[in-house]
Nucleic acid binder design. Sequence first.
RNA 1: GGAGAGGUGGGUGAGUUCGGUUUAAACCACAUUCCUGCUAAGAAUGCGGCCUGUUAACGCGGGCCCGAGGGUUCAAAUCCCUCCCUCUCCGCCA
Length: 435
Amino acid sequence: MIDLAQLRREPDVVKAALARRGVTSSTMDEIIALDARHRVLLHDAEGLRAEVKELSRQVGEARRAKDAEVADALTLESRTLGDKEREASDATEVVARELNERLLMIPNLPAPEVPDGLDENDNVELRRWWVGMDAGVALPTYAEHQRVAHWEIGVQLGILDLESGAKIAGSMFPLFRAGGARLLRALGFFALDRHMADYEEIRPPSFALTETMMSTGHLPKSADDMYAIERDGLWAIPTAEVPLTSIHRGEILDEAKLPIRLTAQTACFRREAGAAGRDTRGLLRVHEFDKVELFAYCTPEQADAAHADILSRAEGLLQSLGLTYRVLNLCCGDLGTSSARTLDLEVFSPGVDRWLEVSSVSWFRDFQARRANVRYRTSDGSTALVHTVNGSALAWARIWAALVETYRQADGSILLPDVLAPYLGGETRITSRPS
RNA sequence: GGAGAGGUGGGUGAGUUCGGUUUAAACCACAUUCCUGCUAAGAAUGCGGCCUGUUAACGCGGGCCCGAGGGUUCAAAUCCCUCCCUCUCCGCCA
């Protein structure tokens, strides 16, 4: 949620920032008008309420003094006033609700570093990395045996069984087998082990209440992209960011404990409603995938460093895995609702010949903290909203795809990087006859 | 799922019988100051959050918050309803 006080204080600044994201000036003017109206109504209603309370107090006094006549008169007066108060409160409530609904639909203000742009085509590439990279060369050279799509490799080696996945849950629910399943498990362990010294490992629930989903900004705006379990009022989490943001929901944190850094691997569920028929082959876009998330609650001053740390960890994993990747600075049009600034990591898939998004490292400022009401006590004793930052490190389905393609050998087997050996029982080769 | 007991400020905990002298007592913890004078004790004061009016600001005022949400009433921590959570017992279960 954006800062209403800031909107009052400097409406032009807020409007200019939001205009970059396509929010019109008139939309904001309507909110400003609603807010002004709300405060007038609120003041009236509270004035009446104060009078009712004072009269009630006097009724009590009169009753104790056994002065029934005065008590009855005051009761009558208070009753009349109470009816007016109720009317005023109801009117205030209607406006408050309307105002809140509007505010929930407003996205975060983009940071100044966020480039202009309408969609993903306007994202700005910051850098590329690959093993043995050369200046002036766009991409590494891949052999023919690396130019095979992972869904074909998956069938050849019996490690990815999309047909069974579709039989069980419908298309875009992948099923991994044998060495493929084991690779997925290895990746999660590998990443969590890397982070656990500095980030507390969490294993959160996979479902969340509506309130929890509201806190991160996934609801109400993106309801169509979420799986809902209506009977129990629950939603399947699209990312661990959702439960992690609500761990401290409604709390006032001790500044000395910040930053609070958390990591979690969870399944992530996405309906991909707006993407029907797009990029649907193999693991390019799936309804369920495992992902390790890094997350921090921090002070505004700590946010930059926290964001940079998550980015460098995600990049570090990619480098350890020897995958080719690039870093994108997302433009205004591609930014998530809650984010003030996001850097995406995309890994190169030689078999599909495409870049695949495997991490999104975002800084939310106090946008989520305001919704989730997470504050901290500053050294001068007052309270302030925390900043939240998070990023994937990493999303495994697409990493899996890039790995099996990149490390496919001429004989059709896969020889994985040695860093994974401890998590694979020392066996880094995947063949069609699993040992 | 069934039966019972609970949920009050940072913590402990009173108030709920019977609605009104409670703007939630008291204690602990914490902060500042004073006194004393040294591995310590005592005293005073302060001690929450959110919204809002006013003010240049310090501040002053109003409203809301006793698990959540409704209701009754002139007036609700207190009475009524629904829901959530915790504990005990039973049932079921990986």
